[in-house]
Design a binder for these strands. Structure first.
Lengths: 134, 134
DNA sequence: CCTCAATTGAGAAACGAGTATCATTAGTAT
DNA sequence: ATACTAATGATACTCGTTTCTCAATTGAGG
């Protein structure tokens, strides 16, 4: 009854699966619209909410009003770093975090989790030397 | 002519100086109101904007609709990590980042900067075992 | 002290992410 | 194939953050 296999859901999952890193809801809408042309933003949010509750996706908060989503089953540890290109804005997965993070918490503080974001330029933007390549 | 030394500006700077980490605009308003009782939120935003342009403060983006500000001259490297308490929500400075971050960028990518945020419980919340100590 | 422009405070307005509404569409079980 | 109900799409709405407006205030220099 719940979680029917709709073409919209498939399109959203495929968009996330084919991405090099976490996507914004509006990016998901753009990418998934190729497979599901009638897709609307409300459905993107609804599916993401369901997938979050089911544990199929997780959120990556990269800044003010910049929450992105990625599939949890991507072969990376739960809270791996991300690289954000300052030129095109795309986010890319980075496989693992450096050692020593556990030692950084101040004395008496309990570390539960961490988020590491790298900023710079992705290889495509560097190659193109283009102020708007992706 | 520009950047007059007003009591409001002084109160805002003092609030930032006495904080253990970056503050939200509304937190700055609360803290600085002790020194400048008539202070309004618009003035907080205006002063932060001026201080940003002057390079006196920098932003720390900790998530969706959670931008905090801290003085740049605090004895820490420019982009040191922060510890965010999941219980009280306060943010604390962490002196330095672990080694090896420069090696994490994917091949062909140019690393310019990074942001590392630790999540857990601050010592006050742990001591109090209180669901809302700060 | 006086002048003048920068600054302020209160509230309105803009803004953007996310949610709710509701008639319509379309999976799924039988 | 049919019926039932979850899911969808368009859009209005919510809600917190940030900016704008404008009259009143207040530093700073003369």
């Amino acid at each position: 009854m719940s979680n029917r296999l709709t073409s919209q859901r498939t399109a959203i999952v495929e968009a996330l699966r084919n991405a090099p890193g976490p996507l914004r809801p509006c990016e998901i809408l753009d990418l998934a619209s190729a497979r599901a042309p009638t897709l609307g933003i409300a459905t993107v949010y609804r599916q993401l909410k369901r997938m979050l509750e089911a544990g199929n996706v997780c959120t990556v908060e990269l800044g003010r009003q910049d929450v992105r989503y990625e599939l949890t089953d991507r072969g990376h540890p739960a809270h791996h770093p991300h690289f954000v290109c300052r030129n095109c804005g795309d986010a890319f997965d980075v496989p693992r975090s450096p050692d020593g993070i556990a030692d950084l918490a101040p004395p008496g503080f309990a570390l539960e989790d961490h988020e590491l974001t790298l900023y710079g330029r992705c290889s495509d933007c560097i190659k193109a030397n283009d102020p708007d390549a992706g």
